[in-house]
Write a protein that binds this DNA or RNA. Sequence first.
DNA 1: TTCTAAATTTAGCTATGACTAATAAACAAG
DNA 2: CTTGTTTATTAGTCATAGCTAAATTTAGAA
Lengths: 142, 142
Amino acid sequence: MEQVKLSQSLEDYLEMVHMLRLANGIARVRDIAAALKVKMPSVAKAVIELKKLGLVTQEPYSGVELTSEGALVASQILNRHILLKGFLIKLGVSEAIADKDACCMEHILSAETLEKIEEFVNPVEVESSAKKSKTAAKSTKK
Amino acid sequence: MEQVKLSQSLEDYLEMVHMLRLANGIARVRDIAAALKVKMPSVAKAVIELKKLGLVTQEPYSGVELTSEGALVASQILNRHILLKGFLIKLGVSEAIADKDACCMEHILSAETLEKIEEFVNPVEVESSAKKSKTAAKSTKK
DNA sequence: TTCTAAATTTAGCTATGACTAATAAACAAG
DNA sequence: CTTGTTTATTAGTCATAGCTAAATTTAGAA
C-alpha cells in the first residue's frame, strides 16, 4: 500500500476513465479528450504516465482499462466528487456549477476537511430521538 | 476594467505581498519566499510577471509595492481567503487546516459558489422575526 | 573606509501539461 | 481487397513554475 500521489491532472484523467467505463463500458481516448476538453495527444501522454504508475492498462490503439489499484484510486476520487457536488448543491449552488467546482475541489482538500463536509452532508443521528432515520443506515461505517 | 486573469500561483504571490505589507509594512523577496515555501528566484520571476501585468512595482533590490489595481485584486483574493477559512472553521475544521485548504480553494471556486458560501456564513435575517440580530448589520450590502 | 555577509537578480536546467502537425493502425464500405 | 475515414500515437513546440549556481548590489561591521 504505497499510496501513489497523483497530480491533479492525472487524477482527472483517471477519474474520467472510470466514469466513461461506468457509462459506456469502455474508455476511449477520443471520449476522454472530449469530456475533459483537451486534445487526444494530451490524453495519450497522460495514459502513458498512468500506465507507468500501474493504474491503467491499454493494448495499443484500443480502450483504456483500470488495474485493480487504479479502480480503487479512481473510485476514491469519484466518491470525493460525489460528496462535494452534493455538498455544494445543499448550499444552493446550481448543479452545473456544483459539478464544475466539485471537480476542482476534489483534488485539493485535506482529509480533515472532507471528513467535516461528510459530517455536514450526512449528519450523525442523535441517539436520543432517532425516529425518522432516512439516511442513518449508511453512517454506521466510520 | 479589463479584469486580469491570474494563475493560481501569481494569485498566491500577489496575496502574500499584500499580507506581508499589512503585517510588516514591507514585502521583501526573502519573506515572500519563506512564507510561500519557495526559493527566492521563484519569487523574483513571479514579481517580474506581476510587474508586467501592472499589479506591483519594485525598485531594484528593494521591497515589492502594490499598484492601486494590484491592491484591489489582492484584497479580493484575501477576502475570499478569509471567507473560506471562516466557512471551514464553521464546519468544524481546525484552524491550521482551514487556512491551508482556504488557500487552495480561494483560486478555483466560481462566483456562484462563493456567493452561496457567503450566504451560509452570513445568513440573511428573516424579516418576520428579526429579534436577536448579531450579524444582520453587514448583510444589507447585497 | 573597506570588507564581508545578506539580499536580490540573472542564467540556465527540469518537470508538467497543454498544443499542432504528421504518422500509423483499425475499421467500414464499396 | 483496397480505399477512405476515424482513432490513436509520435514527434516536437510552448508556457508555467519550480529549482541550483553564480553574479550583483546593498548595507552593516571592523
